[in-house]
Each structure stands twice: as C-alpha cells, then as structure tokens.
Write a protein that binds this DNA or RNA. Structure first.
Length: 444
RNA sequence: GUGGCUAUGGUGUAGUGGUAGCACAAGGGCUUGUGGAGCCCUUUGUACGGGUUCGAUCCCCGUUAGCCACCCCA
C-alpha cells in the first residue's frame, strides 16, 4: 500500500467528494452467519472430538449431498411436521425438479443406505455425517437457518443395546467436549401404542377443558401430545395427573425400553425419565431422548444440544427392506454455545517455534527460502515478510510468543549465515546457513 | 409464523434537535540491523429508506438485522 506523505498539505480542494458515493455491501442472509477465526478453536475441537468418538465406536464417515429431493423429507420427517410444512428451503431447479436443502440428515442416510445396497453388508451399519442443515425458522441465539450437525446412525438392528450404544456415544461426545449435559429419555412406543395413548389423552383432557389455556385448547385438536409441554402454570399442574405414555406401551415396547435403561444403568450413565418428551419428527418410534446443557444460567430457556431416537420404520417407508435403526444428531452451534457458557477452553493449536525475520531485499529473498527449508524439515514457523522494519517484525514475533527468531539481512546473505535470536534471553548467535536445520533441531 | 426490546468506527461504549467523543484493535512512525515499556501520527462510525423541522444521529413511520419470549427444534 502506498502511503501518503506525512506532511500535511494545507487546505486541499477535495475533488474526492464526488467519488465518495457509498456502495452497498451485500449482507449476509438472515439466519446465516460467518463463523470467524476467533471461534475456530471451538469448531475444530468439536469436529476432532466427533471424529475421535466415531472412530472409537466404529462409525464410518460418509458424506451425502446438501441438496436432496423434497420428497425425501416429506415422506420421512412428515408432511404435517413443522419442518416440512413451513421450514424447508424448497425450490424447483431449471429442470422443474422439486428439490430442497436438507433440513436434517437421517433421511439422507437412510436413502444412501438403500441406494448403495448397504443392507448387503454386515449389519448393523454404523455411519456418521457432519455438515450444514437448513431450516427457515425465525433466528434466535442458538438457532440459525444454516446450522451444523454431527449425525450418528446405527442402521440394521432392533436390539435395545443399539439404543444404549447411541446414547453412550453421545454421552462420550459431550463429555470429551467438556460440556456438562443431562439426558432426558422417554419411549413413544410403536405407532399403535401411540394411537391408543393419544385417544386416552384426548379423552382425559376433554373432561378438563375448562382448566386449559387457550393454546392448549387448539393443541387438543391439532397435536394432543403437545399438551404435555405447555408452560402455563395451570396446564402444568394438570399434566402431573395426566395419563403417561409409559403406562400405555405394549409389553414388547415396554420391555425394549426397560432394557435400554438397564444398559444405561450398567454403564452408570445418569438419565432423567421424561414422560413429556415428544419429538417433532414423524419417523421416531420407541426410544427418544435429548441432551440438555447443565448451565447455571436459568434466565434462558434450555435448548436441546441434540435429539435422537429409534426409527424402526423409516427405511421401509423410503422403499427399503424393513430395517430397524437408531441415531442421534448433536447440534454443533449449540455445542459451541454450551462450551462458551461452561467456560470450556478448547485445546490449543501448535504454536510456531520459529519466526523468520528479514532485512533488505536480498535478505527477504533468502528468508522466504529459509522458511520453506525449515517447513520441509517439519518446523512450525511464522513470519511477517510483508513488513520492512525489523522492529515491527520482532514485535510481531514477541506478540506471538515465538521462542526463536532467525534473522537474515544483507550481511548474513554475504557471509552465508543466519542469526539465531533467543527471544527469552535476548542472546544471539551466528550459524552457517547450511547447518541451520540441524542447529534448530537441537534447540527446539 | 406471532409478540416485545434494540441498532453510534473493526470491537466495546459516551453524547447532543445545530452532523460526534473515549478505550481497545488496526496501520504508520520515534536514524531500513533488534521485541516486551513509552511517545507521536493516521484510518474507520450515527444500519437503510422516508417524514416532521430552518436544521435530525437524536422525534415519527417503514425496511432490514440482532436479541428475548412464544411456536418449533439442533
């Protein structure tokens, strides 16, 4: 950049004013955001932990497209669900195909499972995905229109131990992230169990209509299960005596759920039975659960860190063979928020050990080569080649906490040497340029 | 999708119906060969569009965005 002379010019006629028109800067789309370098340590921590945990429990990473046929989610998540009904980014491409940005990824994984013939491989298949999801919701803290999920699925087995394995993985994931979370778990049984329970619930509430809030009167007709998580004091009091779904499960459903809990007990994983968890996606059956951050801050509504459960009918619904499955989707944006709220310090990145400083054009030419030579030898380096002042460069090295500065100026180029400066003590020594790698290996 | 609150340089903030200070950050300098301190200089702003007014950053309306609650959910 060319700097104007420091000398202050007296009253300058300002011809610039005409060129000073404001250009509108394109704005980030509502509900979307840039994740900045300041936050990168948290995101990296999350990704590396997900990767490590996935490896430890035998999950294979797969990647599915962000764009999918709209139909996929209409048939899985449910036509009447909020997600499909009002939150999907759906549009027609130039071929007239109805496509959408994925609002979640479980259905995509099932699609991939079927399409790639994974049912012919050893069962169950353990798969995991990481990536952005899209829902056109009203943005709020911890809620974005583009948000990130890790997603772990075990497809191809109906045993309750699979449910427990999924929960164990999730438990480990949050623990290794450093997040204190608690588990809320419930079973919504088979579709038949649920239908029976719903009828019972509606009947029970009908006789108590007078005690319900306005909102709940609507729920009674539209979505009776939602009656259970109303926040009005009156409704909450009422709920305590309402029939609970666990009492309406069939014997096999109940046995399945009890087995899951027993595995968790064996693992000494604490959980809260929450008879009021009702998932908003149609495909869930039997075990459903979520993790909630254990924050001290009660002033804010608790947001779920993840949602998960069993979905034994989904693969078949999408045209595959009957295939039981269970999975979980931790929300990464929320995990990052929880890490910050709980003062988790993400692991530090490797710090540069050597700063390469230069002086003069010849020195600079030598310096860039020296940097490359040391990088190839495996050192972590840093520099400020675009600066000229040595002071500025040392300042920068100091700020970054680099222990050694290598200095190459005119003189050193002539002598074929390099100055090694120990930033701690301030001591300097001159070494042969060709011996610098072995010399630095001794020091670092 | 509904309602409430908010909007001042990159960040955090002050202030006023007569067009803005401060701190930090950033950039440059204090003999183009030496950092951690200090000093000097510089850049950058009233979200956008209207209205009221002689005059608006301040008052009003709209838009946009963020936050909060609801809805829902990760």
């Amino acid at each position: 950049m060319i700097k104007k002379p420091a000398a202050k010019a007296a009253p300058v006629a300002a011809p610039e004013e005409t060129t000073k028109k404001k250009i509108k800067t394109p704005q980030v789309i509502r509900g979307m955001r840039d994740i900045l370098p300041e936050d990168e340590p948290y995101w990296r921590h999350a990704y590396e932990t997900a990767q490590r945990v996935a490896d430890a429990y035998g999950f294979s990473r797969i990647e599915t497209p962000i764009v999918e046929p709209e139909e996929l989610f209409v048939r899985s998540v449910g036509k009447a669900s909020d997600i499909v009904e009002k939150e999907m980014y759906s549009f027609q491409d130039s071929d007239g195909d109805k496509i959408c940005l994925r609002p979640e990824v479980t259905a995509s994984l099932c699609r991939a499972y079927i399409a790639n013939g994974m049912f012919a491989k050893p069962q169950p298949q353990k798969l995991w995905v990481w990536g952005p999801m899209f829902r056109h919701d009203r943005p709020q803290a911890g809620r974005y229109r583009q948000f990130y999920q890790a997603d772990f699925e075990i497809i191809g087995n109906a045993s309750p131990i699979v449910d427990a394995q999924v929960i164990l993985l999730t438990w480990t994931f949050f623990k290794e992230l450093g997040i204190n979370a608690e588990i809320r778990i419930n079973s919504i049984g088979s579709p038949e169990d649920r239908t029976r329970y719903k009828m019972e619930l509606v009947q029970w509430y009908r006789t108590r209509k007078k005690e319900l809030c306005e909102n709940c009167l609507k729920r009674l007709v539209k979505n009776p299960l939602r009656l259970l998580d109303c926040k009005e004091a009156g409704c909450r009091a009422l709920r305590a005596d309402a029939p609970q779904i666990l009492d309406w499960l069939s014997a096999p459903s109940k046995a399945h759920f009890m087995a899951v809990l027993e595995y968790l007990d064996e693992l000494e994983i604490p959980y809260f039975l929450d008879p009021f968890i009702v998932r908003g996606l149609d495909y869930y059956t039997h075990t459903v659960f979520e993790f909630v951050a254990n924050d001290a801050d009660d002033s804010k509504a608790q947001i779920a860190l993840c949602g998960g459960g069993r979905y034994d009918l989904l693969v078949e619904q999408l045209g595959g063979k009957p295939t039981a499955a269970c999975g979980v989707a931790p929300g990464i944006d929320r995990a990052v928020l929880a890490m910050k709220a709980q003062n988790v310090v993400p692991p530090a990145q490797p710090k540069p050990q050597i700063f390469v400083a230069q002086l003069g054009e010849q020195g600079r030419r030598r310096a860039i080569a020296l940097y490359e030579k040391l990088r190839q030898a495996g050192f972590v380096l840093t520099e400020a080649f675009s600066k000229e002042s040595l002071k500025t460069q040392l300042d920068s090295a100091n700020e970054k906490g680099v222990p050694f500065v290598l200095l190459v100026g005119q003189r050193e180029v002539m002598d074929n040497t390099v100055i090694i400066r120990d930033m701690e003590s301030g001591n300097q020594e001159v070494v042969d340029y060709h011996k610098i790698v072995s010399e630095m290996k001794k020091k670092v």
